[in-house]
C-alpha cells in the first residue's frame, strides 16, 4: 500500500506530534511556558497548516483567538478555572475526561457514573504494559484519562502498523470522543476547551477515515 517508507515515517511522526499536542492540552492547564510554545512562530505555522483542513479550521481559529487573548495572569487563571470546572472536580456537571464515564454510559443506557479506576483504567494499563509503558507518577490520574489515551495513540503512530493504530483508535477513542465532546460543549464556560475537544473529535474522525481508506 505505501511506497514511500521514508516519508511515511515522517508522516507518522507528524501524526504522533498532533496526538501528543492534544494529550498535553488535556493533561494540564495552559501555563506561561505552554502558552509561549503554542504561540511561537513555529507553532503558528503548524496551526495554520492544521487550519488548512476545512474540518479543523473553525476550531483551530477559536483556539488561536483564545490563545491570543491570554495576555495576563488573570486571563490564564480564568482559562485554568474552565479547565478545573470541566476536568478536575466531578463528573455529572462537568466533563471528566475518563473513557469509562462515556463508554459505560453508552452500554448501560443510564446516566450512572461508574467509579474511578475501574475496568477501562485496567484495560489501558494492560495496553501500556504491553508497550513497556506506564503513566507518569507526576500524572496521578486513572489510565483511561483522555490525555493518556492520546499519548498512547501518539506512541502507536511511531511504533506500530496502521492496522493496529486504527484498531486502537476505533476501540478506545472514536467510540466515546463524540459523547465527550458534546458534554464539554455543554459544560464549558469558555470557548477554548470546547473547541479543543471538537478539534480532537474531528482529528480522530479524519484519522479513522484516512486509516480505513489505506487498509
Amino acid at each position: 500500500m505505501n511506497k514511500e517508507p521514508v516519508s511515511d515515517n515522517a508522516i507518522n511522526q507528524a501524526r504522533g506530534i498532533v496526538y501528543q499536542l492534544l494529550s498535553s492540552l488535556f493533561a494540564k492547564e495552559v501555563d506561561h511556558q505552554l502558552l509561549h510554545e503554542l504561540t511561537s512562530d513555529n507553532a503558528q505555522n503548524f496551526w495554520a497548516q492544521l487550519a488548512s483542513e476545512q474540518a479543523f479550521k473553525s476550531d483551530v481559529d477559536t483556539l488561536m483567538s483564545v490563545l491570543n487573548t491570554l495576555k495576563s495572569d488573570k486571563a490564564l487563571l480564568e482559562l485554568a478555572a474552565d479547565y478545573c470546572g470541566l476536568f478536575l472536580v466531578g463528573t455529572k456537571h462537568s466533563a471528566s475526561p475518563y473513557a469509562s464515564l462515556y463508554l459505560e454510559d453508552a452500554q448501560t443506557g443510564t446516566d450512572d457514573e461508574p467509579t474511578l479506576f475501574g475496568e477501562q483504567h485496567q484495560l489501558m494499563l494492560q495496553f501500556l504494559k504491553q508497550s513497556q509503558l506506564q503513566v507518569q507518577s507526576s500524572f496521578p490520574e486513572p489510565a483511561d484519562h483522555l490525555a493518556v489515551i492520546l499519548a498512547y495513540a501518539a506512541h502507536l503512530c511511531n511504533s506500530s502498523d496502521e492496522t493496529a493504530q486504527l484498531e486502537f483508535i476505533e476501540s478506545y477513542l472514536n467510540n466515546w470522543i463524540g459523547n465527550f465532546a458534546a458534554k464539554v460543549t455543554q459544560c464549558d464556560s469558555g470557548q477554548f476547551y470546547s473547541a479543543l475537544t471538537r478539534l480532537t473529535q474531528s482529528w480522530i474522525q479524519a484519522e479513522v477515515t484516512g486509516l480505513r481508506a489505506e487498509q
Partner: peptide, 26 residues
C-alpha cells in the same frame, strides 16, 4: 489526507517541552 499530512510534517517540528504523561515502564 496525505497532502495534508505532508504539509504537517514540515511544520510539526514544534516540540513541546512538557513531559509526556507516559513514561517507560521500568
Amino acid at each position: 489526507r496525505r497532502d495534508f499530512l505532508k504539509g504537517l510534517v514540515s511544520t510539526s517540528y514544534v516540540v513541546l517541552s512538557g513531559a509526556s504523561v507516559l513514561a517507560p515502564l521500568n
